[in-house]
Simulated assay, not measured.
Amino acid sequence: MSSNSFDELPCSAKLVYKILEFYGPMTFSQLRNQTKLPTSTLRQALRVLKENGMINAGICLEDIRSRIYSLTECIELAKDV
């Protein structure tokens, strides 16, 4: 991820990204509780991050009705270099 693409993200998307970076994978409700963002704003932030390839959404094994969001591996690996 280039710093320019991150800088161009909405503030809500940056917040969600940083929360996932700090805490690791989370469900939608966990993100909502952690960020305190309104539901529609959080959905928009997740959509923007997914469209930019910055996060993945998978099925939560504890509750298959929920999705779990995490940073994409390529971004996590790039930070380690």
Rank of each mutant, 00 (worst) to 15 (best):
77 L>H: 10
44 Q>A: 09
66 S>Q: 15
39 T>M: 11
49 L>G: 00
77 L>P: 02
35 T>W: 00
4 N>W: 12
62 E>C: 07
46 L>A: 01
6 F>R: 07
3 S>K: 15
73 E>S: 10
34 Q>H: 08
45 A>W: 01
45 A>V: 03
63 D>H: 15
15 L>D: 02
17 Y>W: 05
4 N>T: 10
43 R>P: 00
12 S>K: 06
30 Q>W: 08
12 S>P: 01
32 R>I: 05
67 R>C: 08
5 S>F: 14
14 K>D: 01
81 V>A: 10
68 I>S: 06
76 E>V: 13
73 E>M: 09
54 M>G: 00
27 T>M: 15
18 K>Y: 09
27 T>P: 15
19 I>V: 15
45 A>H: 01
62 E>D: 12
61 L>E: 08
6 F>H: 08
76 E>N: 06
20 L>N: 03
50 K>R: 12
31 L>F: 03
28 F>M: 11
53 G>R: 05
80 D>M: 14
72 T>Y: 05
49 L>A: 01
3 S>P: 00
11 C>Y: 01
29 S>G: 03
35 T>D: 02
30 Q>S: 12
65 R>T: 15
49 L>H: 02
39 T>Q: 11
58 G>D: 14
5 S>W: 11
63 D>L: 08
50 K>I: 10
74 C>W: 09
43 R>W: 01
2 S>L: 13
79 K>N: 08
15 L>E: 03
64 I>S: 13
78 A>N: 11
62 E>G: 14
63 D>N: 15
43 R>I: 06
81 V>M: 10
51 E>R: 08
65 R>P: 01
1 M>I: 06
66 S>I: 09
44 Q>G: 02
77 L>F: 08
41 T>C: 10
46 L>M: 04
36 K>T: 02
16 V>D: 00
76 E>P: 00
81 V>T: 07
36 K>P: 00
15 L>S: 02
36 K>R: 15
43 R>D: 05
81 V>D: 09
1 M>K: 11
76 E>Y: 06
5 S>D: 08
74 C>N: 13
65 R>G: 07
28 F>Q: 09
54 M>S: 02
5 S>E: 13
40 S>G: 05
75 I>W: 04
77 L>E: 07
8 E>V: 11
79 K>I: 12
44 Q>L: 11
48 V>D: 01
1 M>A: 10
8 E>K: 12
